[in-house]
Simulated assay, not measured.
Amino acid sequence: MDTFPDLGSLSDQELKDLIQQLTEEEVDISYRRRILHGKIDILRAELVNRLRKKHDSGEDVITGADVQRLTDILAGRAEQSSEDAE
């Protein structure tokens, strides 16, 4: 990450240019963020559909591993258990 410039040493035009540059960068990042959120929403919807189909066909939707993972998360051991898995 770039260091922030010494604002006192910048001319008015340089400040305006920097504002414009950072504004354009923020717009780009916001756009990419919205795209990522859309993809995440689509993936979650697919997962819900698959789980619903499993449930409707009588398959187990929640396994013992899922319960253990939730227990670890609630106990604050989520990071340790993921490191142990590697």
Rank of each mutant, 00 (worst) to 15 (best):
H55A: 15
G76F: 06
Q80C: 00
G58W: 10
D6H: 15
G38K: 02
K39E: 12
P5C: 05
G76S: 05
L47W: 07
A78C: 05
S9A: 15
E59P: 00
S30L: 05
K16G: 06
T23N: 05
D84H: 06
Q20I: 11
S11Y: 14
D28Q: 12
L7C: 06
V48Y: 03
D60S: 13
A75W: 04
A78E: 15
E46I: 13
L10F: 11
V48W: 12
E25L: 06
P5N: 00
A85D: 13
E46G: 04
V48D: 01
D12S: 08
Q80F: 10
M1F: 14
E26K: 08
K39W: 07
E46F: 07
D72E: 03
I42E: 12
E26S: 11
D12T: 10
P5G: 00
E79R: 07
E14I: 03
R52P: 02
V67W: 08
E24M: 03
I42R: 06
V27G: 00
I29W: 02
R77F: 06
L70E: 11
R32G: 00
K54D: 13
T71K: 09
F4M: 06
S30P: 00
R34W: 03
G8R: 14
E25W: 02
D28M: 05
D2A: 05
P5L: 00
T71I: 15
L7W: 07
D17L: 11
D17M: 02
L22N: 04
V48R: 15
S30V: 03
I40N: 03
G58A: 05
D66F: 05
Q68I: 01
K16V: 14
D66A: 02
G64A: 09
Q80L: 14
E83S: 10
R77K: 15
G38Y: 06
D2K: 13
T71G: 12
I19C: 10
G64Q: 09
E59R: 11
R34A: 10
A78Q: 15
T71M: 14
D56L: 06
R77H: 10
D41S: 04
E46Y: 13
R32S: 10
H55L: 07
I29E: 02
P5I: 01
A85Y: 13
Q21M: 13
R33A: 11
I73L: 13
E24N: 12
E26Q: 03
K54Y: 13
Q68K: 13
D84L: 09
L74H: 09
D6E: 15
A85E: 11
R33L: 14
Q13T: 11
D41Y: 15
D17R: 07
I73D: 09
E86Y: 07
A78L: 09
L36N: 03
V27W: 07
T71E: 09
L22P: 00
D60R: 12
D56C: 01
E86Q: 12
A65S: 09
S9V: 10
D12F: 10
E79I: 09
E79T: 12
L18Y: 06
S82M: 12
A45H: 09
R69L: 05
M1I: 14
L51D: 03
S57Y: 02
M1Q: 12
L43T: 12
E79H: 04
E59Q: 15
V67C: 00
A45P: 00
